[in-house]
């Protein structure tokens, strides 16, 4: 309870004291501190793929995440995908478990631009990002509700994107809208909706990624989420994938 009061107070204080004068770099730091705050997460998620004609297909996964870059997930629906698992470890290594073959394959990709399981999210989009460390930024505009920032990935980030335009909600310091630019074109838009407080954190429970080129979109909905449950390290292993 003390934690919540502290968090709320500090947010309100930040809002009153600094919001008008915040530099873009400070805004990104604030975004990072909000987004990367949980130590670990256990998420039950529904992924809905909507094609350009409006047809939908639904998948459900359970995903565990620890820190910024350890992630393991398993498909629990539909039945033909049940048991397929993925383990993502730094740097750029993905282990995939294919139950029908009973095999684990280690996939290394030069590009992180590959689609994450047929969704409009790439592996790069699924990575935890530290904006203040990986990007340079400049303020484009602001109004009563949003800061609009242009962030450009640093070379070390090895990003596929040329730049992102973030609309950061002034109340929660969550980028509720991100426009992705590839080779001069705005190719995708991510919108975060239904911001709720879960435990000590504010999270957007619905994320909609629209591919502006194909008309395809992916809706990720957090059915339930658990923070800071002290996930053991042996979850993030091949053995767990095969279980």
């Amino acid at each position: 309870m003390k934690k919540i009061i502290f968090l709320l107070l500090s947010s309100i204080l930040t809002l009153f004291l600094f919001s008008e004068d915040l530099k873009p770099e400070n805004i990104l730091e604030k975004v990072d501190s909000i987004t990367n705050a949980p130590k670990d997460q256990k998420i039950f998620m529904t992924i809905t793929l909507v094609d350009r004609s409006g047809e939908k297909s639904v998948r459900k996964i359970i995903m565990f995440q620890k820190g910024k870059d350890k992630r393991v997930g398993k498909f629990i629906y539909p039945s033909d995908k049940k048991g397929i698992g993925f383990l993502s470890l730094p740097p750029n290594v993905m282990h995939i478990y294919l139950p029908a073959y009973k095999k684990i394959k280690n996939i290394t990709s030069q590009s992180k631009n590959g689609s994450f399981s047929g969704t409009d999210f790439t592996y790069e989009d699924m990575e935890m990002t530290t904006f203040s460390k990986d990007y340079t930024c400049k303020m484009l505009s602001q109004n009563d509700s949003f800061y609009n920032l242009e962030v450009v990935p640093k070379k070390e980030k090895n990003s596929f994107y040329e730049k992102l335009i973030l609309s950061v909600d002034k109340k929660y310091f969550i980028p509720t809208r991100i426009q992705f630019y590839e080779k001069g074109k705005n190719t995708k838009v991510l919108e975060r909706e239904s911001i709720e407080r879960v435990k000590d954190y504010y999270i957007a429970k619905v994320m909609v990624m629209k591919n502006l080129q194909t008309g395809h979109q992916t809706i990720m909905t957090y059915d339930s989420i658990f923070f800071d449950t002290n996930l053991p390290d042996d979850i993030f292993t091949d053995r767990f994938l095969k279980e």
């Binding site: 033909d80 397929i84 139950p99 029908a100 073959y101 590959g114 689609s115 399981s117």
Partner: peptide
């Protein structure tokens, strides 16, 4: 068909 489904998972999104 199970193996096919696993293969689709690998190539989906290309």
């Amino acid at each position: 068909d199970e193996k096919l489904s696993n293969l689709y998972f690998l190539i989906e999104g290309e």
